[in-house]
Write a protein that binds this DNA or RNA. Structure first.
Length: 499
RNA sequence: CGGGGUGUAGCGCAGCCCGGUUAGCGCGCUCGGUUCGGGACCGAGAGGUCGGGAGUUCAAAUCUCCCCACCCCGACCA
Protein backbone atom coordinates (compact mmCIF):
# COMPACT_ATOMS: atom_id res chain seq x y z
CA UNK A 1 0.00 0.00 0.00
CA UNK A 2 2.84 2.33 0.73
CA UNK A 3 4.41 2.14 -2.66
CA UNK A 4 1.81 0.46 -4.81
CA UNK A 5 1.44 3.52 -7.00
CA UNK A 6 5.12 3.44 -7.74
CA UNK A 7 5.10 -0.08 -9.05
CA UNK A 8 2.66 0.81 -11.75
CA UNK A 9 4.99 3.45 -13.04
CA UNK A 10 7.41 2.29 -15.74
CA UNK A 11 10.17 4.39 -14.30
CA UNK A 12 10.34 2.05 -11.38
CA UNK A 13 10.61 -1.12 -13.37
CA UNK A 14 14.18 -2.28 -13.67
CA UNK A 15 15.83 -3.35 -16.91
CA UNK A 16 14.97 -6.92 -16.13
CA UNK A 17 11.32 -6.01 -16.20
CA UNK A 18 10.88 -6.59 -12.51
CA UNK A 19 9.82 -4.11 -9.89
CA UNK A 20 12.54 -2.98 -7.56
CA UNK A 21 12.25 -4.14 -3.99
CA UNK A 22 11.65 -0.76 -2.39
CA UNK A 23 10.89 2.57 -3.92
CA UNK A 24 10.06 5.88 -2.45
CA UNK A 25 7.20 7.88 -3.91
CA UNK A 26 8.63 10.92 -5.65
CA UNK A 27 8.55 14.07 -3.60
CA UNK A 28 7.13 16.01 -6.52
CA UNK A 29 4.32 13.51 -7.04
CA UNK A 30 2.97 13.18 -3.54
CA UNK A 31 4.79 15.02 -0.82
CA UNK A 32 3.09 13.46 2.14
CA UNK A 33 3.41 9.93 0.77
CA UNK A 34 7.09 10.66 0.10
CA UNK A 35 7.48 11.66 3.73
CA UNK A 36 5.78 8.49 4.98
CA UNK A 37 7.76 6.27 2.59
CA UNK A 38 11.02 7.65 3.91
CA UNK A 39 10.06 7.05 7.51
CA UNK A 40 8.82 3.53 6.93
CA UNK A 41 11.53 2.40 4.55
CA UNK A 42 14.43 3.97 6.42
CA UNK A 43 12.91 2.24 9.45
CA UNK A 44 12.71 5.36 11.54
CA UNK A 45 9.25 4.48 12.84
CA UNK A 46 6.33 2.17 12.35
CA UNK A 47 2.63 2.42 13.00
CA UNK A 48 1.65 1.11 16.43
CA UNK A 49 -1.43 -0.96 17.23
CA UNK A 50 -2.98 2.10 18.86
CA UNK A 51 -4.44 4.70 16.56
CA UNK A 52 -2.32 7.82 16.28
CA UNK A 53 0.63 6.23 18.00
CA UNK A 54 3.91 5.15 16.53
CA UNK A 55 6.86 3.01 17.44
CA UNK A 56 10.14 4.85 17.12
CA UNK A 57 12.49 2.24 15.75
CA UNK A 58 16.22 2.09 16.50
CA UNK A 59 17.14 4.15 13.42
CA UNK A 60 14.79 6.90 14.47
CA UNK A 61 15.49 6.68 18.15
CA UNK A 62 19.22 7.02 17.55
CA UNK A 63 18.56 10.40 15.92
CA UNK A 64 16.52 11.41 18.94
CA UNK A 65 19.38 10.36 21.23
CA UNK A 66 21.75 12.63 19.35
CA UNK A 67 19.27 15.48 19.55
CA UNK A 68 18.94 14.85 23.28
CA UNK A 69 22.66 14.73 23.81
CA UNK A 70 23.35 18.01 22.08
CA UNK A 71 20.43 19.86 23.64
CA UNK A 72 21.03 18.44 27.08
CA UNK A 73 24.56 19.79 27.03
CA UNK A 74 23.29 23.19 25.95
CA UNK A 75 20.75 23.16 28.78
CA UNK A 76 23.40 22.21 31.33
CA UNK A 77 25.72 24.87 29.97
CA UNK A 78 23.02 27.45 30.63
CA UNK A 79 22.63 26.32 34.22
CA UNK A 80 19.75 23.87 34.03
CA UNK A 81 19.34 20.52 35.78
CA UNK A 82 17.18 17.53 34.93
CA UNK A 83 14.41 16.05 37.04
CA UNK A 84 11.39 13.86 36.53
CA UNK A 85 7.76 14.53 37.44
CA UNK A 86 4.86 12.03 37.28
CA UNK A 87 2.88 11.14 34.21
CA UNK A 88 -0.41 11.43 36.13
CA UNK A 89 -1.88 14.77 37.03
CA UNK A 90 -4.82 15.10 39.45
CA UNK A 91 -7.84 16.48 37.65
CA UNK A 92 -8.13 19.33 40.14
CA UNK A 93 -4.67 20.61 39.15
CA UNK A 94 -5.69 20.91 35.54
CA UNK A 95 -8.60 23.14 36.49
CA UNK A 96 -6.57 25.67 38.43
CA UNK A 97 -5.36 27.83 35.56
CA UNK A 98 -8.30 29.02 33.50
CA UNK A 99 -6.71 29.53 30.08
CA UNK A 100 -4.58 26.44 30.50
CA UNK A 101 -7.53 24.18 31.16
CA UNK A 102 -9.48 25.68 28.30
CA UNK A 103 -6.55 25.11 25.99
CA UNK A 104 -5.90 21.52 26.94
CA UNK A 105 -9.03 19.83 28.29
CA UNK A 106 -10.38 18.71 24.93
CA UNK A 107 -7.20 16.88 24.05
CA UNK A 108 -6.46 15.12 27.31
CA UNK A 109 -6.57 11.42 28.04
CA UNK A 110 -8.04 10.74 31.45
CA UNK A 111 -7.60 7.73 33.70
CA UNK A 112 -10.76 6.89 35.61
CA UNK A 113 -9.91 3.46 37.00
CA UNK A 114 -6.98 1.87 38.75
CA UNK A 115 -6.53 -1.43 40.50
CA UNK A 116 -9.93 -2.49 39.27
CA UNK A 117 -11.71 0.35 41.08
CA UNK A 118 -13.03 3.71 40.05
CA UNK A 119 -10.65 6.40 41.26
CA UNK A 120 -11.62 9.00 43.87
CA UNK A 121 -10.19 11.64 41.58
CA UNK A 122 -9.58 11.26 37.87
CA UNK A 123 -5.99 11.40 36.73
CA UNK A 124 -5.02 13.26 33.59
CA UNK A 125 -2.18 11.92 31.53
CA UNK A 126 0.09 14.94 31.21
CA UNK A 127 -0.35 16.95 28.01
CA UNK A 128 2.41 19.13 29.51
CA UNK A 129 3.61 19.43 33.09
CA UNK A 130 3.13 23.03 34.20
CA UNK A 131 0.48 22.17 36.75
CA UNK A 132 2.15 19.28 38.49
CA UNK A 133 5.49 21.05 38.51
CA UNK A 134 4.09 24.26 39.95
CA UNK A 135 2.28 22.28 42.62
CA UNK A 136 5.74 21.14 43.71
CA UNK A 137 7.40 24.53 43.32
CA UNK A 138 4.80 25.73 45.80
CA UNK A 139 6.48 23.50 48.39
CA UNK A 140 10.02 24.27 47.37
CA UNK A 141 9.99 28.04 47.13
CA UNK A 142 9.86 30.35 50.13
CA UNK A 143 12.65 32.85 49.73
CA UNK A 144 14.24 34.80 46.91
CA UNK A 145 17.28 32.73 47.80
CA UNK A 146 15.46 29.67 46.44
CA UNK A 147 15.31 31.30 43.04
CA UNK A 148 15.82 30.78 40.24
CA UNK A 149 14.82 27.16 39.80
CA UNK A 150 15.99 25.92 36.44
CA UNK A 151 14.60 22.44 35.85
CA UNK A 152 14.25 20.48 32.65
CA UNK A 153 12.65 17.11 32.15
CA UNK A 154 12.82 14.60 29.30
CA UNK A 155 9.46 12.90 29.10
CA UNK A 156 6.56 11.60 27.10
CA UNK A 157 3.28 13.47 26.87
CA UNK A 158 -0.12 12.63 25.43
CA UNK A 159 -2.43 14.85 23.43
CA UNK A 160 -5.53 13.36 21.88
CA UNK A 161 -5.24 14.88 18.43
CA UNK A 162 -7.94 14.52 15.82
CA UNK A 163 -5.46 13.92 13.12
CA UNK A 164 -1.98 12.53 13.45
CA UNK A 165 1.11 12.30 11.29
CA UNK A 166 4.26 10.32 11.96
CA UNK A 167 6.66 12.41 14.06
CA UNK A 168 4.86 15.69 13.34
CA UNK A 169 1.83 15.01 15.45
CA UNK A 170 1.26 11.77 17.28
CA UNK A 171 -0.99 11.03 20.22
CA UNK A 172 1.98 10.29 22.43
CA UNK A 173 5.28 12.00 21.79
CA UNK A 174 8.64 12.50 23.43
CA UNK A 175 9.95 15.91 24.31
CA UNK A 176 11.81 17.97 26.80
CA UNK A 177 10.09 20.60 28.85
CA UNK A 178 11.98 23.24 30.77
CA UNK A 179 10.15 24.81 33.71
CA UNK A 180 11.83 27.68 35.45
CA UNK A 181 10.92 29.93 38.35
CA UNK A 182 12.25 33.47 38.77
CA UNK A 183 12.08 36.41 41.14
CA UNK A 184 11.26 39.03 38.54
CA UNK A 185 9.55 39.48 35.23
CA UNK A 186 12.84 40.56 33.70
CA UNK A 187 14.61 37.40 34.85
CA UNK A 188 11.84 35.26 33.40
CA UNK A 189 11.86 37.20 30.17
CA UNK A 190 15.61 36.87 29.87
CA UNK A 191 15.31 33.11 30.40
CA UNK A 192 12.54 32.81 27.81
CA UNK A 193 14.63 34.55 25.20
CA UNK A 194 17.81 32.73 26.19
CA UNK A 195 16.20 29.34 25.65
CA UNK A 196 14.67 30.36 22.38
CA UNK A 197 18.14 31.30 21.26
CA UNK A 198 19.41 27.91 22.38
CA UNK A 199 16.79 26.36 20.12
CA UNK A 200 17.72 28.58 17.22
CA UNK A 201 21.39 27.73 17.61
CA UNK A 202 20.60 24.04 17.86
CA UNK A 203 18.34 24.10 14.80
CA UNK A 204 20.87 25.92 12.69
CA UNK A 205 24.10 24.33 13.86
CA UNK A 206 23.01 20.77 14.46
CA UNK A 207 19.95 20.27 12.31
CA UNK A 208 21.26 22.50 9.50
CA UNK A 209 17.82 24.05 9.61
CA UNK A 210 17.56 27.81 9.15
CA UNK A 211 14.80 29.29 11.30
CA UNK A 212 13.05 32.57 11.88
CA UNK A 213 12.82 33.37 15.55
CA UNK A 214 10.24 35.67 16.97
CA UNK A 215 7.06 36.12 18.93
CA UNK A 216 3.72 34.44 18.47
CA UNK A 217 0.58 36.49 17.96
CA UNK A 218 -2.25 36.46 20.53
CA UNK A 219 -4.14 33.68 18.83
CA UNK A 220 -1.13 31.45 18.33
CA UNK A 221 0.38 31.68 21.81
CA UNK A 222 0.39 28.95 24.45
CA UNK A 223 -2.70 28.60 26.64
CA UNK A 224 -1.75 30.28 29.89
CA UNK A 225 1.26 32.27 28.74
CA UNK A 226 1.85 36.02 28.75
CA UNK A 227 3.56 35.52 25.47
CA UNK A 228 5.17 32.80 23.41
CA UNK A 229 8.33 32.85 21.34
CA UNK A 230 9.04 30.36 18.60
CA UNK A 231 11.35 29.21 15.88
CA UNK A 232 9.78 28.56 12.50
CA UNK A 233 11.32 26.60 9.66
CA UNK A 234 10.32 26.05 6.05
CA UNK A 235 9.87 22.52 4.80
CA UNK A 236 10.45 21.46 1.20
CA UNK A 237 6.76 21.78 0.40
CA UNK A 238 7.11 25.43 1.48
CA UNK A 239 4.96 24.99 4.53
CA UNK A 240 6.01 26.27 7.92
CA UNK A 241 6.86 24.01 10.81
CA UNK A 242 7.07 25.31 14.36
CA UNK A 243 10.22 23.66 15.60
CA UNK A 244 10.39 24.95 19.15
CA UNK A 245 8.62 27.24 21.58
CA UNK A 246 9.49 29.19 24.67
CA UNK A 247 6.88 30.78 26.92
CA UNK A 248 6.93 33.57 29.41
CA UNK A 249 4.16 32.40 31.74
CA UNK A 250 4.21 35.48 33.91
CA UNK A 251 2.65 35.02 37.33
CA UNK A 252 -0.22 32.93 36.02
CA UNK A 253 0.86 29.57 37.36
CA UNK A 254 2.25 31.05 40.57
CA UNK A 255 -1.15 32.58 41.22
CA UNK A 256 -2.97 29.38 40.32
CA UNK A 257 -0.81 27.34 42.70
CA UNK A 258 -0.15 30.08 45.20
CA UNK A 259 3.61 30.13 44.83
CA UNK A 260 5.03 33.15 46.67
CA UNK A 261 8.45 34.08 47.91
CA UNK A 262 9.74 36.68 50.28
CA UNK A 263 12.06 39.15 48.63
CA UNK A 264 15.03 40.98 50.16
CA UNK A 265 12.66 43.70 51.38
CA UNK A 266 10.58 41.13 53.29
CA UNK A 267 7.72 41.48 50.84
CA UNK A 268 5.76 38.49 49.56
CA UNK A 269 5.69 38.22 45.78
CA UNK A 270 4.45 35.80 43.19
CA UNK A 271 7.05 33.81 41.33
CA UNK A 272 7.59 34.37 37.61
CA UNK A 273 7.54 31.33 35.36
CA UNK A 274 8.79 30.16 31.99
CA UNK A 275 8.49 26.95 30.06
CA UNK A 276 10.06 25.81 26.83
CA UNK A 277 10.15 22.66 24.76
CA UNK A 278 11.06 20.77 21.65
CA UNK A 279 9.81 17.35 20.69
CA UNK A 280 10.35 14.36 18.43
CA UNK A 281 8.68 16.56 15.85
CA UNK A 282 12.21 17.78 15.18
CA UNK A 283 12.86 14.44 13.50
CA UNK A 284 10.00 15.20 11.13
CA UNK A 285 11.55 18.59 10.45
CA UNK A 286 14.86 16.97 9.70
CA UNK A 287 13.28 14.61 7.21
CA UNK A 288 11.22 17.24 5.45
CA UNK A 289 13.97 19.80 5.26
CA UNK A 290 16.77 17.77 3.75
CA UNK A 291 15.66 14.46 2.28
CA UNK A 292 15.28 13.61 -1.39
CA UNK A 293 13.82 10.97 -3.70
CA UNK A 294 16.54 8.51 -2.73
CA UNK A 295 15.61 8.66 0.91
CA UNK A 296 16.69 10.26 4.13
CA UNK A 297 19.44 12.87 4.22
CA UNK A 298 20.86 13.52 7.66
CA UNK A 299 23.10 16.35 8.79
CA UNK A 300 26.40 14.83 9.95
CA UNK A 301 26.13 16.22 13.47
CA UNK A 302 22.95 14.25 14.16
CA UNK A 303 23.53 11.22 11.95
CA UNK A 304 23.79 8.06 14.08
CA UNK A 305 26.29 6.73 11.55
CA UNK A 306 28.40 9.39 9.90
CA UNK A 307 30.54 7.20 7.71
CA UNK A 308 29.70 3.77 6.41
CA UNK A 309 32.50 1.73 4.92
CA UNK A 310 31.53 -0.84 2.31
CA UNK A 311 34.25 -3.39 1.67
CA UNK A 312 33.93 -4.83 -1.82
CA UNK A 313 34.97 -8.44 -2.24
CA UNK A 314 34.22 -11.54 -4.23
CA UNK A 315 35.94 -14.23 -2.22
CA UNK A 316 37.17 -14.86 1.29
CA UNK A 317 40.67 -13.61 0.60
CA UNK A 318 39.38 -10.32 -0.76
CA UNK A 319 36.91 -10.05 2.07
CA UNK A 320 39.61 -10.41 4.65
CA UNK A 321 41.87 -7.95 2.88
CA UNK A 322 39.22 -5.25 2.46
CA UNK A 323 37.59 -5.71 5.85
CA UNK A 324 41.00 -5.50 7.53
CA UNK A 325 41.70 -2.27 5.72
CA UNK A 326 38.23 -0.99 6.65
CA UNK A 327 38.91 -1.72 10.32
CA UNK A 328 42.09 0.30 10.21
CA UNK A 329 40.22 3.21 8.69
CA UNK A 330 37.53 2.84 11.29
CA UNK A 331 40.07 3.07 14.11
CA UNK A 332 41.56 6.23 12.62
CA UNK A 333 38.15 7.83 12.32
CA UNK A 334 37.07 6.81 15.82
CA UNK A 335 40.08 8.71 17.08
CA UNK A 336 38.59 11.74 15.38
CA UNK A 337 35.29 11.07 17.19
CA UNK A 338 33.55 10.02 14.03
CA UNK A 339 30.79 7.44 14.12
CA UNK A 340 31.70 4.70 11.68
CA UNK A 341 30.06 1.48 10.60
CA UNK A 342 31.56 -1.27 8.46
CA UNK A 343 29.00 -3.13 6.39
CA UNK A 344 30.69 -6.48 5.82
CA UNK A 345 27.52 -8.51 5.39
CA UNK A 346 28.02 -10.98 2.61
CA UNK A 347 24.41 -11.70 1.82
CA UNK A 348 24.12 -8.37 0.03
CA UNK A 349 26.10 -7.12 -2.92
CA UNK A 350 27.78 -3.71 -2.92
CA UNK A 351 25.20 -2.01 -5.14
CA UNK A 352 22.43 -3.09 -2.81
CA UNK A 353 24.30 -1.70 0.15
CA UNK A 354 24.92 1.61 -1.61
CA UNK A 355 21.20 2.05 -2.05
CA UNK A 356 20.34 0.99 1.44
CA UNK A 357 22.74 3.37 3.17
CA UNK A 358 21.62 6.13 0.88
CA UNK A 359 18.03 5.44 1.94
CA UNK A 360 19.11 5.62 5.56
CA UNK A 361 20.77 8.99 5.10
CA UNK A 362 24.35 8.25 6.09
CA UNK A 363 26.38 11.36 5.15
CA UNK A 364 29.46 9.63 3.76
CA UNK A 365 29.78 6.24 2.11
CA UNK A 366 33.26 4.87 1.65
CA UNK A 367 33.78 2.22 -1.02
CA UNK A 368 36.78 0.05 -0.52
CA UNK A 369 37.61 -2.68 -3.02
CA UNK A 370 40.72 -4.57 -4.09
CA UNK A 371 41.40 -2.04 -6.85
CA UNK A 372 41.29 0.79 -4.34
CA UNK A 373 43.58 -1.04 -1.96
CA UNK A 374 46.06 -1.63 -4.76
CA UNK A 375 45.98 2.09 -5.49
CA UNK A 376 46.13 2.99 -1.78
CA UNK A 377 42.85 4.87 -1.87
CA UNK A 378 39.12 4.81 -1.13
CA UNK A 379 36.17 6.20 -3.03
CA UNK A 380 33.82 8.45 -1.06
CA UNK A 381 30.27 9.33 -1.95
CA UNK A 382 28.56 12.16 -0.10
CA UNK A 383 24.84 11.88 0.62
CA UNK A 384 24.10 15.51 -0.16
CA UNK A 385 25.41 15.16 -3.71
CA UNK A 386 24.36 11.96 -5.41
CA UNK A 387 25.74 12.32 -8.93
CA UNK A 388 28.40 9.78 -9.77
CA UNK A 389 30.69 12.63 -10.71
CA UNK A 390 30.48 13.88 -7.13
CA UNK A 391 32.38 10.87 -5.85
CA UNK A 392 35.71 11.70 -4.29
CA UNK A 393 38.81 9.57 -4.43
CA UNK A 394 40.93 9.85 -1.32
CA UNK A 395 44.40 8.51 -0.49
CA UNK A 396 44.39 6.23 2.57
CA UNK A 397 46.75 8.53 4.46
CA UNK A 398 44.51 11.53 3.84
CA UNK A 399 41.40 9.98 5.33
CA UNK A 400 41.76 11.03 8.91
CA UNK A 401 42.41 14.63 7.97
CA UNK A 402 39.94 14.95 5.12
CA UNK A 403 36.85 13.13 6.41
CA UNK A 404 36.22 15.53 9.32
CA UNK A 405 36.44 18.41 6.87
CA UNK A 406 34.11 16.68 4.46
CA UNK A 407 31.56 16.11 7.22
CA UNK A 408 31.72 19.81 8.09
CA UNK A 409 31.29 20.70 4.47
CA UNK A 410 28.23 18.48 4.14
CA UNK A 411 26.76 20.00 7.29
CA UNK A 412 27.31 23.47 5.88
CA UNK A 413 26.02 22.58 2.44
CA UNK A 414 22.78 21.25 3.90
CA UNK A 415 22.26 24.45 5.82
CA UNK A 416 23.10 26.66 2.85
CA UNK A 417 20.83 24.65 0.59
CA UNK A 418 17.94 24.83 3.06
CA UNK A 419 18.51 28.54 3.58
CA UNK A 420 18.59 29.26 -0.11
CA UNK A 421 15.38 27.29 -0.54
CA UNK A 422 13.69 29.25 2.20
CA UNK A 423 14.94 32.61 0.95
CA UNK A 424 13.91 31.77 -2.61
CA UNK A 425 10.41 31.08 -1.35
CA UNK A 426 10.00 34.03 0.98
CA UNK A 427 8.27 37.01 -0.59
CA UNK A 428 7.34 40.57 0.28
CA UNK A 429 3.73 41.61 -0.12
CA UNK A 430 2.16 45.02 0.29
CA UNK A 431 -1.47 44.31 -0.45
CA UNK A 432 -4.01 41.80 0.79
CA UNK A 433 -4.64 40.52 -2.73
CA UNK A 434 -0.95 40.03 -3.30
CA UNK A 435 -0.68 38.05 -0.08
CA UNK A 436 -3.69 35.99 -1.00
CA UNK A 437 -2.21 35.18 -4.39
CA UNK A 438 1.01 33.92 -2.83
CA UNK A 439 -0.93 31.76 -0.38
CA UNK A 440 -3.21 30.36 -3.05
CA UNK A 441 -0.18 29.44 -5.12
CA UNK A 442 1.48 27.78 -2.11
CA UNK A 443 4.46 29.99 -2.87
CA UNK A 444 5.97 29.90 0.61
CA UNK A 445 6.37 32.58 3.29
CA UNK A 446 5.27 36.16 2.90
CA UNK A 447 6.74 39.02 4.89
CA UNK A 448 4.47 42.00 5.32
CA UNK A 449 3.41 44.78 7.68
CA UNK A 450 0.90 43.75 10.30
CA UNK A 451 -1.17 45.58 12.88
CA UNK A 452 -4.09 43.19 12.88
CA UNK A 453 -6.23 41.74 15.64
CA UNK A 454 -7.28 38.22 16.56
CA UNK A 455 -10.23 38.61 14.19
CA UNK A 456 -7.94 39.59 11.35
CA UNK A 457 -5.94 36.43 11.93
CA UNK A 458 -9.12 34.39 11.80
CA UNK A 459 -9.88 36.04 8.49
CA UNK A 460 -6.49 34.97 7.13
CA UNK A 461 -7.14 31.45 8.21
CA UNK A 462 -10.65 31.34 6.75
CA UNK A 463 -9.77 32.97 3.49
CA UNK A 464 -6.36 31.51 2.72
CA UNK A 465 -5.68 28.82 5.34
CA UNK A 466 -2.65 30.81 6.38
CA UNK A 467 -1.49 32.01 9.78
CA UNK A 468 0.92 34.58 11.14
CA UNK A 469 3.83 32.28 11.90
CA UNK A 470 5.77 34.78 13.93
CA UNK A 471 6.71 38.37 14.53
CA UNK A 472 10.45 38.11 13.93
CA UNK A 473 12.87 39.65 16.40
CA UNK A 474 14.82 40.99 13.46
CA UNK A 475 12.88 44.07 12.41
CA UNK A 476 14.18 46.78 10.11
CA UNK A 477 12.12 49.44 11.87
CA UNK A 478 10.78 50.86 8.61
CA UNK A 479 7.14 51.85 8.48
CA UNK A 480 4.37 50.68 6.24
CA UNK A 481 0.69 49.84 6.06
CA UNK A 482 -0.79 46.75 7.69
CA UNK A 483 -1.62 44.21 5.02
CA UNK A 484 -5.13 43.71 6.34
CA UNK A 485 -6.19 46.84 8.23
CA UNK A 486 -4.17 49.45 6.39
CA UNK A 487 -3.04 50.95 9.71
CA UNK A 488 0.45 52.36 9.79
CA UNK A 489 2.93 50.15 11.66
CA UNK A 490 6.60 49.30 11.91
CA UNK A 491 5.95 45.62 12.61
CA UNK A 492 6.56 43.07 9.92
CA UNK A 493 5.41 39.47 10.28
CA UNK A 494 5.85 36.18 8.49
CA UNK A 495 2.73 34.58 7.11
CA UNK A 496 2.52 31.07 5.77
CA UNK A 497 0.64 27.83 5.73
CA UNK A 498 1.69 25.64 8.59
CA UNK A 499 1.79 22.05 9.74
C1' C B 1 -16.92 14.57 12.53
C1' G B 2 -17.07 15.04 6.84
C1' G B 3 -14.68 13.28 1.99
C1' G B 4 -11.67 9.45 -0.36
C1' G B 5 -9.25 4.74 -0.15
C1' U B 6 -7.68 -0.09 1.56
C1' G B 7 -8.26 -4.86 4.08
C1' U B 8 -6.26 -12.04 0.34
C1' A B 9 1.35 -15.29 3.02
C1' G B 10 6.16 -10.95 6.49
C1' C B 11 5.57 -6.80 2.45
C1' G B 12 3.28 -5.19 -2.30
C1' C B 13 -0.61 -6.98 -5.30
C1' A B 14 -3.91 -10.20 -8.87
C1' G B 15 -8.32 -13.05 -8.55
C1' C B 16 -14.26 -10.53 -7.15
C1' C B 17 -18.13 -7.77 -12.47
C1' C B 18 -19.73 -13.17 -14.65
C1' G B 19 -19.88 -18.03 -7.52
C1' G B 20 -17.37 -23.98 -9.19
C1' U B 21 -10.42 -28.04 -9.24
C1' U B 22 -5.64 -27.93 -4.63
C1' A B 23 -6.55 -19.38 -3.90
C1' G B 24 -2.18 -17.24 -7.55
C1' C B 25 2.09 -13.64 -8.76
C1' G B 26 6.41 -10.47 -7.39
C1' C B 27 9.58 -9.19 -3.37
C1' G B 28 11.28 -11.03 1.15
C1' C B 29 12.42 -15.62 4.09
C1' U B 30 14.96 -20.99 4.46
C1' C B 31 18.42 -24.62 2.07
C1' G B 32 22.09 -25.68 -1.98
C1' G B 33 25.09 -23.68 -5.88
C1' U B 34 27.07 -19.84 -9.23
C1' U B 35 27.96 -14.57 -8.42
C1' C B 36 29.84 -9.88 -6.09
C1' G B 37 32.64 -1.77 -8.07
C1' G B 38 25.01 1.19 -8.19
C1' G B 39 19.18 -2.95 -5.58
C1' A B 40 22.66 -10.61 -9.31
C1' C B 41 21.00 -15.48 -11.03
C1' C B 42 19.63 -20.84 -11.06
C1' G B 43 17.33 -24.86 -8.42
C1' A B 44 14.54 -26.69 -4.26
C1' G B 45 11.35 -25.29 -0.12
C1' A B 46 8.47 -23.02 4.05
C1' G B 47 4.60 -19.75 4.65
C1' G B 48 -3.03 -18.36 4.04
C1' U B 49 -8.91 -18.06 9.96
C1' C B 50 -9.10 -14.35 1.87
C1' G B 51 -10.58 -8.02 8.22
C1' G B 52 -15.10 -10.01 11.39
C1' G B 53 -20.27 -11.64 11.65
C1' A B 54 -24.86 -13.05 9.52
C1' G B 55 -27.44 -14.43 5.13
C1' U B 56 -28.37 -16.45 -0.16
C1' U B 57 -26.67 -21.17 -2.53
C1' C B 58 -25.50 -28.01 -3.70
C1' A B 59 -21.14 -24.61 -3.52
C1' A B 60 -18.82 -17.88 -1.38
C1' A B 61 -12.31 -14.54 -1.51
C1' U B 62 -16.29 -13.78 -5.32
C1' C B 63 -23.39 -12.14 -4.41
C1' U B 64 -26.48 -9.40 -0.14
C1' C B 65 -26.69 -6.98 4.66
C1' C B 66 -24.32 -5.39 9.10
C1' C B 67 -19.95 -4.37 11.78
C1' C B 68 -14.65 -3.41 12.55
C1' A B 69 -9.77 -1.65 11.63
C1' C B 70 -6.24 1.26 9.33
C1' C B 71 -4.32 4.94 5.86
C1' C B 72 -4.80 9.58 3.04
C1' C B 73 -7.27 14.52 2.51
C1' G B 74 -10.08 18.59 5.37
C1' A B 75 -11.90 21.19 10.34
C1' C B 76 -8.44 21.48 16.36
C1' C B 77 -3.14 21.49 17.86
C1' A B 78 3.77 21.01 19.26
Amino acid sequence: MLCCASFKNDEFISKRGRPMAEKITKRSEDYSQWYIDIIVQAQLADYAPVKGCMVIRPNGYAIWEHIQQALDKMFKDTGHVNAYFPLFIPESFMNKEKEHVEGFSPECAVVTHGGGKKLEENLYIRPTSETIIWSMYQKWIQSYRDLPILINQWANVVRWEMRTRLFLRTTEFLWQEGHTAHATYDDAEEETVRMLNVYKTFAEEYMALPVFHGKKTESEKFAGALHTYCIEAMMQDKKALQAGTSHNLGENFAKAFDVKFQDANKELRYVWATSWGVSTRLIGALIMAHSDDNGLVLPPKLAPTQVVIIPIFKDDAEKQQTVDAARKIKMQLIEKNIRVHIDDRDQYRPGWKFNEWELKGVPIRMELGPKDLAAGQVVCARRDKTEKTDKITMKLEEISSKIPLLLDEIQKNLFDRAKKFRDDHTFQASSYDELKKYMEDDAGFVQCFWAGSREDETRLKDEMKATVRCIPFDQSGEKGKCIVTGKETNVKVIIGKAY
